[in-house]
Design a protein around this nucleic acid. Structure first.
Lengths: 229, 229
DNA sequence: TACGTATTCTACCGGTGAGTAAGATATCAA
DNA sequence: TTGATATCTTACTCACCGGTAGAATACGTA
């Protein structure tokens, strides 16, 4: 809590005067909004709440966003962009499918422990209009398809045991999504410990040859860390 | 959808006259409400919506429940009771920890593909009052602790590789929770296929001796099936 | 400094939804 | 059949929230 309000302080100050900085202020709204949406949910966070947190009044928000939904859609876009980037980087690698999966687990955990990554998972896209929902769900589906393709590649190159890639990708993503729900940066569980065990457990189950060593330890994905809370 | 409205039909008819059947009608409200909450979320389902679906008017609902929250809490209670029962049955068994985990996976999947089980996972307890939230979260925490104990037992008896049981239990539950989110009874993926692969993948990762055979195939948990949709 | 305008504010509208008051109606028990 | 009451309805209150109109203010620039 103290950590959070501390992180929100700079955004409050941004709106202390009327200095012209539309882009910066727009981003500040997004950072504040995503935190509040994650904490209280989108539906229970009013535009007044967000405005108050930024030391402005509600109508000022409408200077930067056409409506509440636009804020949420933009948050989703930032989050899915992070994931897309990670997938780009993994797909570009030349390694066995199972190792790519290990990289995915590590990278995905890194992302979903940040605000915008967690938003993709936790915020309810059912709050969106039909158009917005279609957009957001399309992006999510694409991510799932790319993960599935990686798993299928691993089955093809023999590093992953034959299985239904659709089910396996759901399982993988689901396990990590669950983590996004309970993970607390200030909590007792260290992120590296969680990541290690997730990789071990999940790749252990997938591996074609039972318990095995990965060719390389999973890399720590880095990229756009600046966007994280 | 047709399947759903078909399932809801009997409840509509229950309220066609004013026959006195408070217990039956109360349960009918819960069955209708849980379906609607799962489909549109608790927050976006109004008491008017529920009443209309039952062919009555809103104030009639207040004859059976003090307020909206009481409906949700009761739904949670029914769901967590199902899970508790399954855990009772697993704990009573005498078998290696890993086999108990396999049973848990199969049983949990069975439960969370039903309405009330899914409700425990999918419905947002953040909508509850402080008191209600405390109650519900306590029940969820207890379930997690029991799963953790089973895993620790498996580490103790040597069937599960040494690991952090807390992380492992979160992973397990998270993977299955994810499933509850996307599983569609009418979808292309058969439940038995999903269950098989989940058991294989998750126990495969946990097993002390790499890829191994379970002592017995996981049982299909049955109990209170009548409560399912 | 003074103007144009980006930024923000005060005051409001309209819709929605939880919950209630008070009365009507049908069921059940005698 | 009739009275008691469980059940359900009509009509309402109140609070909240997304969004807007139009005015005020202060920043940047010429």
């Amino acid at each position: 809590m103290s950590k959070q309000s501390a992180a929100l302080q700079p955004h409050r100050r941004l709106f202390a005067d009327r200095k012209r900085n539309p882009d910066g202020k727009r981003v500040a709204v997004l950072h504040t909004a995503v935190r509040m949406f994650l904490e209280r949910s989108y539906g229970r966070t009013s535009m007044d709440d967000v405005a108050t947190q930024l030391n402005i009044t509600k109508p000022a928000l409408y200077h930067y966003f056409r409506n509440k939904e636009e804020i949420l859609v933009e948050i989703y876009r930032l989050g899915t962009d992070l994931i897309d980037e990670m997938l780009d980087s993994i797909e570009a690698d030349e390694k066995p499918g199972l190792d790519k999966v290990a990289d995915f687990i590590a990278g995905y955990i890194q992302i979903v422990t940040g605000d915008f990554g967690r938003a993709v998972i936790r915020l309810d896209d059912g709050e969106l209009s039909k158009a917005g929902r279609k957009l957001v769900r399309g992006r999510k589906r694409e991510i799932d398809h790319r993960l599935r393709a990686i798993i299928e590649g691993g089955i093809g190159d023999g590093s992953i045991a034959s299985c239904d890639a659709k089910i396996a990708s759901f399982l993988l993503a689901g396990a990590i999504h669950g983590m996004a729900a309970w993970y607390e940066p200030a909590g007792p569980l260290k992120l590296s410990a969680i990541t290690n065990q997730y990789v071990r457990l999940l790749t252990g189950g997938l591996a074609a040859d039972g318990l095995r060593e990965l060719a390389e330890p999973p890399f720590a994905f880095k990229g756009n860390a600046h966007i994280h809370g």
